[in-house]
Design a protein around this nucleic acid. Structure first.
Length: 280
DNA sequence: AGTCGAGTAGGTCTTACGTCA
DNA sequence: TTTGACGTAAGACCTACTCGA
């Protein structure tokens, strides 16, 4: 019999998500993309196969997620535009019904009352960058925690509430998603690194054990092995292995008080979280 | 140097519309 | 004339990248 190969395969199947993580099928992702490693981390146990399923994100996807779909204007000629008053591509129609947002574009142009840092100047002078107030940021954060994406209705409502343009809200969410994802990627990367190190150590250890076993195999069998298998019994409670006193053949004079040979319960030498299932 | 609002490029998806068998 | 399939344009929205305050 051959000794099986105990080397560990460390498969880091980093499924290539094409740049178009928007692998197309999704329109509106409702939540922060669930990192492929989330589940792994949840287990707190690296697996031997650290594969990143090709598109976990798409698992969440919602070809059928109608919330976003419904929220979306059903026709190019309908309703809501996410573009701000400041930027309206020539080809685009001005929004007609804007869900009551018709007037809010005017509002939002004067978005900040705290210094007018954001003004739509037609005179060509560069626009100053907006800094959101603490209150605005806090509310946006709250909403982001609830949903990482907004449907147009929510966007307009939030914009109105914050006295911002819908476009600004939209951009904030876009940036927030991007930066959340970036952070998550860094965390995932760190986690994978640790997994890799851990598995490398484990592999090394198993190789060492394998060598030891090979040496043992060449050595004379341990004492317990000198008994015929049929004469060995294991105590169900203490798991001790005993040589049965009255074996089929050799009971002979054993019946008396002859203390049978006792082998201490074997430690599960090979047990390890990584290989437990495999060895069982 | 890091943060963050904003612009842009390029992608997918849906809808409306025209054409054709 | 009607109808279904198909191609296309337009618009909306997304991610990724980038810039600049």
């Amino acid at each position: 019999m051959d000794v099986c190969d105990t080397s560990l395969a460390l498969g880091l199947g980093v499924g290539g998500r094409s740049t178009a993580s928007s692998s197309g099928t999704t329109r509106r992702r409702q939540e922060v993309p669930c990192s492929p490693l989330r589940s792994l981390m949840a287990q707190k146990q690296p697996s031997l196969m650290l594969s990143l399923p090709h598109d976990v994100y798409n698992g969440e996807t919602n070809k059928g997620s109608e919330e976003g779909r419904q929220a979306r204007p059903s026709s190019p000629h309908s309703t809501v535009s996410s573009f701000s008053a400041a930027y309206t591509p020539p080809t685009m129609k001005k929004e007609k019904d804007d869900g009551g947002g018709g007037g809010e574009e005017a509002d939002t142009a004067r978005a900040d009352s705290r210094g007018g840092s954001y003004d739509d100047n037609d005179d060509g002078s560069p626009r100053k960058k907006l800094r959101l107030t603490k209150e605005q940021s806090a509310l946006l954060e709250d909403r982001f925690k609830e949903h990482s994406t907004l449907n147009p209705k929510q966007k307009h409502a939030l914009a109105k509430q914050l006295n911002l343009r819908p476009r600004q809200v939209e951009v904030w969410f876009q940036n927030r998603r991007a930066r959340t994802k970036l952070k998550q990627t860094e965390v995932d990367c760190e986690f994978l690194k640790r997994c890799c190190e851990s598995l490398t150590d484990e592999n090394r250890r198993l190789h060492k054990e394998l060598q030891e076993l090979k040496v043992l195999k060449l050595a004379p069998p341990p004492v317990c092995m000198q008994f015929p298998a049929a004469t060995l019994t294991m105590c169900p409670s203490c798991k001790s292995i005993r040589a049965a006193a009255d074996g089929p053949k050799g009971g002979g004079g054993g019946g008396g008080g002859a203390e049978p040979f006792v082998v201490a319960p074997a430690k599960p030498h090979f047990f390890h979280r990584f290989i437990h299932s495999a060895s069982c």
